[in-house]
Amino acid sequence: MTAIEIRDLAKSFGSVKAVDGVSFTVEAGSVTGYLGPNGAGKTTTLRSLLGLVTPDSGEALVDGRRYVTLPQPVSEVGAVLEATSFHPGRTALDHLRILCVAAGLPDQRAGEALEMVGLADVAGKRVGGFSLGMRQRLALSSALLGRPKIFILDEPANGLDPAGIEWLRGFLRHLAHDQGAAVLVSSHVLAEVEQTVDNVVIIAKGRLVRQGTLAELTTNGDTAIRVRATNAAELAPALEAAGAAVERVEDGLLRVRGIGAEAVGQIALDRRVVLTEVTQERSDLQKVFLELTGER
């Protein structure tokens, strides 16, 4: 089911074309990474989708409708835009309780949402004393209040420490894969989303440059396996006999194409060769990203 649909979206700020004819969709049950360098137009796209920015042309729809026409937006879409939009003198719980009453949700959702992001013990603390990571979690908890099925997150990993990023990855996967939510998450740091996303949409200078699954993007039909073995000289002919193309990189290290890792392991077992490393080589997503976005 198409949860998010962006169609020919365009928006200019003055003479700058922030978004220039972007189209893509996000399906329920999947995490889509919206990637691009800073200033590529990611935030403008997401804000158009949420009715905060009025596009010049084109459409940005959630569940087939414009966000501003949703009768209960908080219960349909959870949005995380930036970690700075809190009054510093207000407590975390109060911040959420305000959103609850405005959205017609029971107050207890505020406490529950804080618990889900691990902020329950600082619920009564003023946000002014929060770290960037805590604010980011608070922003995420506000998106959870209405138990929505669509999530739109703009650079949610900003300011999170490695443990926080790991937690976020698991959380987004859980929302999409276990709860069937559609998740659209933007980032300019590939490594953050590489292990999280199913689909990738890449934008640069306001234009879409690539859309597809993560696998489509990283495997260019040219995947090699790095094999390190104690007796590589004996292993190589056996692999070649099984139909693999073997490149002898250095003493003890082979690059094998044409057969899978499991086959490599089986042949090594048959030959009683000790493998010290078997790595699936992927074309580096970072490299693909930089090439596609014209950053080098």
Binding site: L50, G51, L52, Y67, V68, L70, P73, V74, A79, L81, E82, T84, S85, F86, H87, P88, L99, A102, A103, S142
Partner: peptide
């Protein structure tokens, strides 16, 4: 004006887009 100053207006208009 504090809604604009602290950008809480984002959350306000997300909750009540009208």
């Amino acid at each position: 004006t504090s809604e604009y100053r602290y950008q809480t207006v984002t959350g306000t208009f997300l909750t009540t887009p009208r």
